[in-house]
């Protein structure tokens, strides 16, 4: 083995001086914070899409404002808003109900996944809206004709098809989530980018650490796009393709 590879393995391996376990732990944190953010984004996205489609004027205005503003500003700004705004809100509650004093900080993980959820929800809302438009009107008319009430139609006919048509777009949203999770490092959460930075700073070898971090991101994105492709194929199995 060449000398640089031995040195690299000693640095990034799982020996007593290796950073391998910490890097993998940080990668797991990246996946955890992105997937919680993605789930919250699905909730916000579904609510916003429902607001847009409900025909209710105020709900539609709120949903449109949400998706337009959030998609027009940097994710980093949303993260700062949630992290510091959440702390300010917590401090206010703390003073109001418990008479406490001083600064109450929001846990970095919570701030991170809420911020990712807020930004990703705006993108998911558009995906859901597009998927809803792709559901054939005839299916809903048929369901109404056999006497299904609205909620049953939503659950049996609309929701499964919206999910099916939304899958490719949701895959893109998940990739956005993963990449946005790197920005959460500004709140101090030790995810992959933060861990690579810390490792690089303490060993004075930024390059190896950041390159390893980037490689781990590539592994995560490649694996998850494979999983989404599988899910898509499974969701489409009942459909005839032209």
């Amino acid at each position: 083995m060449p000398a640089w590879l031995v040195a690299y393995w000693e640095l990034m391996g799982f020996g007593p001086r290796g950073w391998g376990a910490l890097m993998l732990q940080a990668a797991a944190m990246t996946v955890a914070v992105s997937s919680s953010g993605f789930a919250l984004g699905a909730l916000f996205g579904a609510l916003a899409a429902w607001g847009r489609l409900s025909g209710h004027r105020i709900a539609a205005a709120i949903a449109t404002t949400y998706t337009t503003v959030i998609r027009g500003i940097p994710e980093l700004l949303v993260i700062y808003l949630v992290f510091f705004g959440g702390a300010a809100a917590l401090g206010w509650f703390h003073r109001l109900f418990w008479g406490g004093e001083g600064f109450v900080s929001l846990p970095a993980f919570v701030a991170g996944f809420v911020a990712v959820g807020i930004s990703n929800g705006a993108y998911q809302a558009e995906v859901f809206r597009g998927a809803h438009a792709a559901v054939a009107r005839g299916e809903i008319e048929a369901a109404r004709a056999v006497g299904m009430p609205r909620w049953l139609i939503a659950r049996r006919i609309v929701a499964p098809q919206v999910l099916r048509f939304a899958l490719p777009g949701l895959g893109n949203c998940w990739q956005l989530c993963l990449k946005e999770s790197a920005l959460i490092s500004v709140t101090g959460l030790v995810e992959l980018l933060r861990q690579s930075f810390i490792g690089g700073r303490s060993t004075r070898d930024f390059f190896s650490f950041l390159l390893t971090g980037a490689a781990l991101y590539l592994v995560i994105t490649t694996l998850s796009s494979g999983l989404f492709a599988l899910a898509e194929r499974r969701a489409m199995r009942g459909l005839r393709r032209a």
Partner: peptide
């Protein structure tokens, strides 16, 4: 990969 790590690689790495 995230843009942030690309920027860090160029700036610090």
């Amino acid at each position: 990969t995230p843009l942030a790590i690309q920027m860090f690689l160029i700036y610090f790495g």
